[in-house]
Design a binder for these strands. Structure first.
Lengths: 167, 167
DNA sequence: TGCAAGCGATTAACATGTTAACTATACTCA
DNA sequence: TGAGTATAGTTAACATGTTAATCGCTTGCA
């Protein structure tokens, strides 16, 4: 969508970096800070998920599917924050493992509906308690109130930048 | 601290999840929210970086190297938040492109020092203004003060979860 | 009606993420 | 001093991220 915000620069902010004295301090890169925070959290979840034999992205798909009867690929991708090609690969793998089954969409032959199998649901039930426990530990350690504030800011940020990824 | 909000699930929030009624609402996954926020930001940076012929990760490496004379791989990986194998591949590519040159560490033969070439520095100088402009636009749109608060919370979060990725 | 444009899902190609294994060097301490 | 251990960097193997292209189905509209 058009919108070309990349014009006004401000120029003289920091005298840092002998390199060019131009780019702000590396520590002030927002994407980088978001990545760091995410890594700090995922460092705890990944070993647990691995012990269950699934990846972070695969768990996202299972979680989303566990909350609904069936979803088409587009909605599934949106909720699990996965790009279509990644989702396609994961679902193909899940079908081989008999964790997910696909069916036809009622009125649109382009769409495919996906749902957990009984086996997929069992896997969710096994992983969920561990995920809950780790999440509770993080909330304890960081502080529930601060966590809430962080959530709120992140949601506002995603919404503010539009991109419709926020909803 | 304490305060463990992830214990009282409320149970009756959503009639959804016939699955187990156990895992909290999907929207309350912190890693997911951090990912969403990051995606919202990167959606703006990626096209710009692509127009310069580099990826997000490659830009991180260039940025870090532009701020110092030379760094060994370990420090470079830590600052750019990249795993060693990813860094190895990027640096090998950069050497072929004559953007980075390597040299021996003074006292430790295991380490390798990396630094930008003149060409690498020129690339940084070309990309930096565009990055600054996009960052300024985001700050404008979200609000400078809120952005500051978000930074602070993210830093605290990374530090609180230890993992030493925070420093 | 029919065709151009749009959309959902997939595939392709390459870059990065993730874990494990491996090599070479450095360190530790009996 | 020398075996055992730790560390920096690389390589391997597989999963995911990212963009572009493709294929079939749908929709809009002349």
């Amino acid at each position: 969508m058009s919108a070309s915000p990349a014009r006004r620069v401000g120029a003289e902010r920091l005298p840092t970096t002998r390199a060019s004295g131009f780019l702000r301090d590396i520590e002030l890169s927002l994407p980088l800070q978001l990545l760091k925070a995410r890594e700090a959290a995922m460092a705890r979840f990944r070993p647990m998920l691995r012990s269950h034999g699934i990846t972070e992205q695969q768990w996202r798909v299972i979680r989303v599917l566990a909350a609904d009867e069936a979803l088409d690929g587009r909605e599934l991708a949106r909720r699990s924050i996965l790009l279509a090609p990644s989702l396609t690969r994961i679902l193909q793998y899940f079908e081989k493992q008999n964790l997910v089954k696909r069916s036809a969409h009622a009125s649109d032959q382009r769409r495919v509906m996906f749902a957990l199998t009984a086996r997929g649901r069992r896997l969710f039930d096994q992983v969920a308690p561990d995920a809950e426990a780790l999440y509770a530990a993080i909330a304890d350690q960081f502080g529930g109130q601060k966590l809430k504030t962080l959530y709120k800011l992140l949601a506002e940020f995603s919404t503010a930048l539009g991109s419709e990824a926020g909803e």
